[in-house]
């Protein structure tokens, strides 16, 4: 059971949160110039790394804010969190 330090509320248990995908994920554009494969890349293709990854989480049952978490998918260690809008946290290997 993860304990995620929400930048707004402090450390809370996993069931209060919802995972929201890898970041950064840049939407390609402009729409008329986007190829099918670029669009598929954006919609479906993921790094899905085993190890450290930056991802977005939502504190659903708390402040309802989105924020960034650096997490290790192999050990579940949480290295850093930061509020949206702040510079993305560094991944320290």
């Amino acid at each position: 059971m993860l304990r995620i330090p929400c930048p707004w509320c402090g450390p809370r248990d996993e069931p209060e949160f919802r995972w929201g995908g890898e970041v950064p994920l840049v939407r390609p554009g402009p729409p008329q110039a986007v190829t099918e494969s670029a669009w598929a890349e954006y919609l479906f293709m993921r790094d899905n790394p085993k190890g450290l990854v930056r991802e977005r989480w939502l504190h659903t049952l708390g402040c309802r804010q989105w924020f960034i978490v650096v997490r290790n998918t192999a050990t579940h260690e949480i290295q850093a969190t930061s509020a949206l809008g702040d510079p993305l946290p560094e991944i320290r290997p």
Binding site: M1, R3, D13, I78
Partner: peptide, 14 residues
């Protein structure tokens, strides 16, 4: 706590 079994250790020291 007596008669109490710790049956599982989960992530982040739960």
């Amino acid at each position: 706590l007596q008669r109490t079994t710790a049956f599982g250790c989960y992530d982040h020291n739960l």
